[in-house]
Amino acid sequence: MDGNSHEKIKQDPNYQELVRRRSSLGWTLSLIMLVIYFGFILLVAYAPKFLGIRLGAGVTTIGIPIGLFVIVSAFVLTGIYVSKANSAYDTLIRRIIER
């Protein structure tokens, strides 16, 4: 890339939209993951008995679905990012390159 082309790209509204949308989605999803995970860790550290509450008459505790939820949420959040990026960002990048 030569010295001026990145200045030109920076002025491109497509580029500005790409950066704005990608950064806000990336940081928002990261924050959600942090909140979910450290929420779980804080429960483990400060309220282990809460995770030991039984569901119904059986021995299965509420901790099992909560743990599974954290695992599944990691996968789902990644999926949300990838599908957004595949549909929206790649089109914007193509437009920037075409200019």
Binding site: W27, V44, G67, L77, T78, V82
Partner: peptide, 21 residues
């Protein structure tokens, strides 16, 4: 028992961060 799940969760949650950032 359950403690094993706490560890697995920890090993997994780095991946979304890798994807996003």
């Amino acid at each position: 028992g359950y403690d094993g799940l706490i560890y697995s969760v920890g090993w997994l949650v780095g991946w979304p961060i890798v994807t996003f950032l």
